[in-house]
Design a protein around this nucleic acid. Structure first.
Lengths: 157, 157
DNA sequence: TCTCACGTAACTTACCATGTTGCGTGATGG
DNA sequence: CCATCACGCAACATGGTAAGTTACGTGAGA
């Protein structure tokens, strides 16, 4: 009855991947993406599976294959991506029990749940305000601020 | 470099304990509290250590010993208790890396952090609005709604 | 047909709140 | 003074999950 939850960075990772894909013309292989994120290709495929199933990206096998964007970046928000990952738990703290047999605990649960829910709602709302296009534009802005030419970006890391 | 975090229910547990103590006149032993929370006395002592160090509760050894409240319930909020527990992580999702060597990741981090921070701030603010006294009153309200006499409460669970 | 790249299952690892055991300390009471 | 109680604390065990890894299968291109 103990719910575990590791600090989940899948959303962060997926966004990183999507933005890298947005900077490339052709398909990008899991291997290349894995190197960019300093991780394993299988991890990339695993985490991208949900996005593929929901049509945000497309994958192709064989020579010249890899991952390509299959959506309008200006119409997809971080909240959409979060949902595509299966809407994992947002909060790291929670109630001891969902079905308290004790009035005291029921009272505690009610008070905490109220706060928890409002925080979750706010977070989801904020994620819903940010489009992938906005993020992509931000990357270019940061590049310019670094004194580089916006195109032909070096995309290590 | 992977930050782990189990669904933390210490706040929930501590609040449960404090409210039970508020309903008793004398000291309450870790053993009694442990039975109420269906856990181990050592766990109670461990989680209460922070509260004791910060003066919210008092502990006494020997015969007739146990835990007693040492604060004004109307002046202590859930946020105070949360802080006394060491301000554990609130969010279950986070960035892959805190120090990105990649502009793309920096951009992702910035966007997510903004949302994360606002959610955390809201949650803390909400917790800061609820006093232990309010929770205690809520327990009595729930008791009355159950058709019991407010005093002499049965405090199982 | 060989290589590439994804698809997927199975296993391992890392991490940490919680559970548990054991021993020490101080206070009460006989 | 000694037995008992109750906290203090260190040390170890447990359990669950994201991420890492290995292995094998499938389909597409050269």
């Amino acid at each position: 009855m103990v719910s575990y939850v590791r600090r989940d960075s899948r959303l962060s990772g997926v966004l990183h991947v999507l933005l890298h894909m947005a900077q490339k013309d052709g398909p990008v292989t899991s291997d290349v993406l894995a190197k960019a994120l300093d991780t394993n290709p299988v991890v990339i495929r695993r985490v991208m599976a949900g996005l593929r199933d929901q049509g945000y990206v497309h994958s192709e096998k064989g020579h010249g294959g890899g991952w390509t964007l299959a959506c309008d970046l200006s119409k997809v928000t971080l909240r959409d991506i979060y949902a595509a990952l299966g809407s994992p738990s947002l909060l790291a703290i929670g109630n001891r029990t969902d079905t308290p047999g004790c009035l005291v605990e029921a009272s505690v649960n009610a008070a905490l749940d109220k706060s928890f829910r409002s925080a979750e709602e706010l977070l989801l709302a904020r994620l819903g305000e940010v489009t992938l296009a906005a993020l992509h534009a931000d990357v270019h802005t940061r590049h310019a601020a670094r004194g580089h030419s916006p195109r032909k970006a070096k995309t290590n890391g």
